[in-house]
Each structure stands twice: as C-alpha cells, then as structure tokens.
C-alpha cells in the first residue's frame, strides 16, 4: 500500500509474464479439449518425479549388481550378487574387524546403538515435555516455541554450535573447571563423542516430536479427566489409565518415525565429529554410503548402491509397519 507504484509495476510485470505463459496453454486447451487439461497441469510435477525420484530407484537396484568405477551403466560390468556378498560376508557379525567390509559393519553397529539410545532418549524427553505443556500452563506457547526453535536450524549450524560448546576452551569445560573437574576434549573421546552425538540429536529434534505428542494429548476428550477427578483418581492413576493408553497410537507413530529418521543420521553428526571421528566411533551407514560413492576417489557406486538397497529395505519395512498402524488407528 505504501508504494503503490512498485506493486503496480510488479503486478503489470506478472500479468505480462502470465500472458506469455497463458497463450500456449490456452492453445493446448482449444486443441485437446478441457478434459485433457489436468494431465497438462500434472505434467511438470510428474516429469520431475519420474526423472529425479523413480528413475533413481530403478537405477539403484540396477547399479547394486554392477561393479567397476564407471559412471554410466554401459561402462559397468554385471557382477551379480558380488556387492551384496562383499557387504554381508562375515565370520562374526559382532566383530566388524572379522568382516570383509569391516567399515560397513562398524557403521551398522554404530547406527544400531545410536538408534537405540536416540529413540529412547528423544521419546522420553518429548513425552515428558508434552505432558507438562499439556497441563493448564501459563506461557505454554512460549515454551512450545522455545523447544521447537532448534528444529528449524540447519544441521551444519547445529554441529558447529555444539562443537564450539564442547571445545577444549568451550563453555562446558569452563563450567566443569568451576566445579574443579579437569577439562576434557569431549569430541576426541570415543565414549563422550558418542554420548554427545545422541545429546545433540535429542536437542535438535525433540521439539518436533513434542509438537506431535502435544497435538495427540489435546485430542483426548476433556470429560474423561472430569470423570476421573469426580472419582478422585490420583494423578498417577489418571496418567497410566487415561492419558498414556489414549496416547498409545500417537506414541507408536512417533516411535516408528523416530526410528526411520534415526537410521538415516548423517548431517549433524558428520559436522560435529569431523566426519565420524574419533577414528570410526561415529561413522554411520549413510556416511558409509557417502564415502564409498563420493568420498576421496573411491567412486564405488556398486557397493554404495548395494548398501543403499539394504538400508532402503529396512526403512521400507519400518514404513509399512507405520502404515499398518495408521490404518489400525483409523478403524
């Protein structure tokens, strides 16, 4: 409103562009009839999906059966199940060192441990926060926004902020020194670095799950709580007999969603731990795929695709469970 000239000019420019775009589209309509228009409107979307989503899936499966370092299918020899054999050949799966692809199995075990701790910790923190925020609480909006804020940050930013916080000269060490504890280089210690990868992940994502659980809690009918208070039920009894059972389906959905996302841990851990360090203590499956395909000059696309296919199968199984649960919830 304050600059009518600028908006007018912008509007006219937009009208001009649309006039140019409109002419061929209207031509198509006159030629093919109105009934065919939805196909034209869908075309850009479907073409992009076809090229950048469905074609890659087809290629992924195909590439997993080829070897060599060539880029295109024509340059790549067919090797059958060799890539899968290389990934899965192992004397003792519990000791990655005894496997042919020891890096892969290190990554698998690191990922499994991470998923276990991360899912448990995130679920617990998000559930407690959602339960507290669901009480008739002053400043609920403020706290909800506060916990949600990290969700919007970039993984690189989060990795760097925490790297600085945990630095040898960082705030955590300064705080520990005040308590008389000697400083520690947390990210160079195997145990501490793994611990903080989980902490950072919970810090990053808990706000998202809190929001979903809070929406679930607010959908529980209020009269159930009134009935409970008339019966003088204790708060603990109300929690275990009303709140948690009715929240059950939401909890399951959050659980599966968390698992699907935890399996794919990469960005923030990669930045925080300088690419999976110390050593391979924080190297996860996605990092393995990334390094096999793009890291240094390896370019082992076949092996990386085979690992992607294996991870994809696990994620697919989790997704199907999620869909099945969703359908159960609706019925």
């Amino acid at each position: 409103m304050s600059t009518p000239k600028a908006t007018d000019l912008g509007g006219r420019a937009l009208d001009f562009v649309m006039g140019v775009v409109e002419a061929p589209i209207n031509g198509f309509e006159r030629l093919m009839g109105r009934k065919r228009m939805p196909y034209l409107f869908l075309a850009p979307n479907l073409i992009l999906f076809g090229i950048f989503t469905f074609l890659p899936i087809a290629i992924a499966v195909g590439y997993a059966f080829t070897g060599g370092t060539g880029l295109f299918v024509s340059e790549r020899p067919f090797v059958g199940f060799d890539n899968f054999r290389q990934l899965l050949q192992c004397e003792d799966y519990l000791r990655p060192g005894s496997c042919r692809e020891s890096l892969f199995w290190t990554a698998v075990w690191n990922t499994l441990w991470f998923v276990g701790f991360n899912v448990a910790a995130t679920l617990l923190v998000a559930l407690v926060t959602a339960l507290i925020l669901n009480r008739a609480m002053a400043a609920r909006g403020f706290f909800r926004a506060m916990f949600f804020y990290p969700v919007l940050l970039s993984p690189v930013v989060i990795g760097l902020i925490w790297k600085w916080f945990l630095d040898r000269n960082g705030l955590l060490n300064a705080f520990l020194q005040m308590l008389g504890v000697p400083p520690e280089i947390f990210l160079l210690d195997v145990g501490w670095s793994r611990f903080f990868v989980v902490v950072v992940s919970v810090w990053f994502h808990m706000g998202f799950y809190t929001l979903i659980l809070l929406a679930g809690l607010q959908a529980i009918p209020k009269d159930l709580y009134e009935a409970a208070s008339i019966d003088a039920a204790s708060p603990r009894r109300t929690l275990f007999r009303i709140t948690l059972p009715l929240l059950g389906p939401n909890l399951l959905v959050v659980l599966i969603l968390l698992m699907i996302r935890s399996v794919q841990i990469f960005d923030e851990a990669w930045v925080l731990t300088n690419g999976g360090g110390p050593g391979t203590a924080n190297s996860f499956i996605v990092q393995y795929i990334y390094q096999m395909a793009f890291g240094s000059d390896l370019r082992l696309f076949g092996l990386a695709s085979a690992a992607s296919v294996l991870m994809g199968l696990v994620l697919l199984a989790l997704t199907l469970i999620q869909l099945r649960l969703g359908r159960k919830m609706e019925s």
Partner: peptide, 24 residues
C-alpha cells in the same frame, strides 16, 4: 504415486540421483 514418494528418503537414492543429475 505422488504421495508414495514421501516414503523414499534422499539417503537411499542419493547415489543414483547423483548419476541422473550427471546424466542430465
């Protein structure tokens, strides 16, 4: 079909998606 692509995470198709991007 469109909604089902929600289930395909980038991490699974990143290698072939890169090859497609090289191809085009």
């Amino acid at each position: 079909l469109i909604i089902s692509t929600l289930m395909i995470p980038l991490t699974v198709v990143m290698v072939p998606a890169y090859l497609v991007v090289v191809g085009v």
